[in-house]
Amino acid sequence: MKGANIFFTGLLFLTTIFLLTCEGETAEPRTDKGYDYFPLKVGMEWNYLMDSIVLRPQVGGILFDSARLDVRETLVDTLRDLEGQLWYRGERYDRRVDSTAWRFSQTFLLRRDDLRAYRQEDNLEFVKMVFPLRADQNWDGHVAFDPFREIEVAGQPIQIYVDWNYRYLSFEQAGTVMDKTYDQLTLVEGADYENLLNRRLAIEGYAKNTGLVYRELEVFETQCQLCCNGDTGACLDLPWREKAEGGFIIKQWLVQ
């Protein structure tokens, strides 16, 4: 890895679909709940490219430590928990793009029932989607754990998941992620807010019959010390990449 303040831009353009009904007619009840956006089958495999930047405190400043990785996720088995619920066990591998050697990264679990889709990783359980897909859907994606839980990032404890509010930005629309076009794409926003000391952005894209095709996570924190000697007034209008003192950026997209 080498330190660099690199700006990544995820391209995600969505066309608009209008749902029209004729005057005097009643729209038919929705029968497709959206389960195909979170498909589960042993043997399924997803290959991604991932750009990551981790902010590492250094003497005299912050190092923006960047890397590009190939990431492979494969569903390898199933299991049932103590309540009899069926989970799919996946394995995640990664490697630097200039390397040929894959390394094991983590095990994860996926599950879907009639109302929700779940992912477990790093001892945290997330509600990734809710069914049926609706424009007015909001949900607590962290109901299974304390969102104030601190996660260590580059040696610093950060409360990544405070004040998230999951919702559908759009669903079942045609769209393009990087250089791949999908006929039916659903976008989930986990967070998009900032205040004086924190910035959180979390977006995921799911394609029908494919699953996760895009993920973007931006977490910044500051105490306005390095940039402004604690002067929050001077710190307020600075770009986050100038005033951030901890956090990370992840952008991940499907390549095949």
Rank of each mutant, 00 (worst) to 15 (best):
E194N: 14
L86D: 09
Q106E: 14
A191Q: 09
D183L: 03
N198C: 02
R96N: 10
L169P: 03
D140V: 05
H142S: 13
Q137F: 02
F171Q: 13
V162T: 01
D140L: 08
Y193K: 09
Q106F: 01
Y193R: 08
N198D: 11
S170W: 07
A174R: 10
D122C: 00
D122M: 08
Q173L: 13
I151V: 11
F145V: 13
N198V: 13
Y161I: 02
S170N: 11
T74E: 12
I160T: 02
Y193G: 05
V188Q: 02
D179N: 14
E189D: 12
V143Q: 12
A101V: 15
E172S: 15
F145Q: 10
E125Y: 02
N165V: 11
W139P: 06
D114T: 04
R80K: 11
S99F: 03
N195R: 11
Y93S: 02
Q106H: 06
T74Y: 13
P132Q: 11
V153Q: 04
K128F: 03
I151W: 05
R167D: 02
D98F: 08
N123L: 15
G205I: 10
A154D: 07
R116H: 10
D81P: 01
G141H: 11
R200A: 14
V71N: 04
V130T: 15
F126I: 02
L124W: 00
Q85M: 04
D113T: 00
G190Y: 10
D179A: 08
A154S: 13
I203Y: 09
N138D: 06
Y168N: 05
V177P: 01
E204N: 13
R119V: 01
I160H: 03
D192L: 11
P132R: 11
M129T: 00
T176K: 05
E189V: 06
G141N: 05
N195Y: 06
D98N: 12
V143Y: 13
L82Q: 07
P132T: 06
N123W: 10
Y193N: 03
E83H: 11
P132D: 12
P157H: 10
L196G: 14
F104H: 04
Y166L: 13
L201D: 07
G84A: 10
A135S: 15
D192F: 14
V97T: 15
K180V: 14
D122S: 07
L196N: 09
L187E: 07
E150A: 15
L109P: 02
L75G: 01
G141M: 07
R199Q: 07
A174Q: 05
A117V: 05
A202G: 09
F148E: 02
R116S: 08
A144V: 10
Y88C: 00
L196Q: 09
D179H: 04
V153W: 03
L79I: 00
R200N: 15
D183T: 10
R92Y: 02
M129A: 09
M129D: 09
E194A: 15
F108K: 02
V71M: 06
T181Q: 11
G205S: 10
V177A: 00
R80E: 15
Y206V: 12
R200C: 14
